[in-house]
Nucleic acid binder design. Structure first.
Length: 255
DNA sequence: GTTACTGTGGCTATTACCTCA
DNA sequence: TTTGAGGTAATAGCCACAGTA
């Protein structure tokens, strides 16, 4: 398996049951449960618009047509849309977002907007291309791209945000895999060294050699490429020969 | 120069919709 | 036809930082 293949690494990491991704946080805020979305409360208090949405393609078409027919709103407001499903229909509620152009517009739309849309292949491809160029956009770029893709700026913003998160997650997985492999290598190396130490000790007691008497076994290391043991006098000022590793902590380079 | 306030954008965690096996 | 899993758009809340009064 190629370590540069992130897909392989990802699969391996997952198959190994490694916890990947930012799943923990030190922030106390994230430890307490968030207030659940309560659309019914909102319905009573704020009287948001209420729409029974069709869960069919017909609805998607309607929403898309509506979406396309309206001009691109001003950039980046954090509108809040809440929804819940009933067995028969998806009820979409919009909370008022003070100062939000989008919210105002949505009210004009009578709240009949899908909570979540699926980006087309073309839209995804274009977003992906832009992401390759820059992982974040300034407001002008965002606005232009949104217009080009016939999306709201907020949607472009969210896409980039999620994309960055995905990239980071993948990178974390790769790092995790690399660390795991390092750990495995070091463990194996450690085992070999321990075994070697045992052999040295037994040799020293059975057939004392001046060479072995002078060399503390702990200063020896295996060359990872040729698997040969090399050694010299500990504490010697002489430059180490190729394949000789005095520090057992440091990972030796191959000969 | 310092402080308080505000707006903006990014990040993380989570939710919920949608697709597919 | 149903269902569970996975992918991902969307949301919520926090933080950092810059601009300003």
């Amino acid at each position: 398996m190629d370590i540069n293949n992130s897909q392989d690494i990802r699969e391996t990491a997952l198959s190994l049951g490694l916890g990947v991704g930012p799943t923990t946080t030190t922030s106390a805020e994230h430890l307490r449960p968030r207030e659940p979305c309560s659309p019914l409360t909102n319905l009573a208090s704020d009287q948001p618009s209420l729409a029974l949405s069709l869960s069919t393609d017909a609805y998607a078409e309607t929403a898309k047509a509506k979406e396309e027919s309206r001009p691109a709103p001003a950039s980046s407001s954090r509108s809040a849309v809440s929804s819940f499903s009933s067995p028969h229909a998806t009820i979409v509620l919009r909370e008022k977002d003070v100062g939000s152009d989008e919210a105002e517009e949505d009210e004009e739309d009578n709240g009949c907007v899908r909570k979540k849309l699926r980006l087309t292949k073309e839209q995804s491809a274009m977003l992906e291309n832009r992401f390759k160029e820059h992982t974040s956009l300034n407001p002008k770029q965002k606005q232009a791209l949104a217009k080009q893709l016939n999306l709201r700026p907020r949607q472009v913003e969210v896409w980039f945000q999620n994309r960055r998160a995905r990239t980071k997650l993948k990178q974390t997985e790769v790092d995790c895999e690399i660390l795991r492999r390092c750990y495995e290598k070091l463990t194996a190396e450690n085992q070999r060294l321990r075994k070697e130490l045992q052999e040295m000790k037994s040799l020293r007691f059975s057939a004392p050699s001046p060479l072995y008497m002078q060399i503390p076994a702990a200063t020896l290391a295996l060359c990872p490429s040729c698997q040969r043991i090399n050694g010299s006098e500990a504490g010697s000022d002489a430059a180490p020969k190729p394949g000789l590793f005095l520090n057992p902590i440091t990972r030796p380079a191959p000969c």
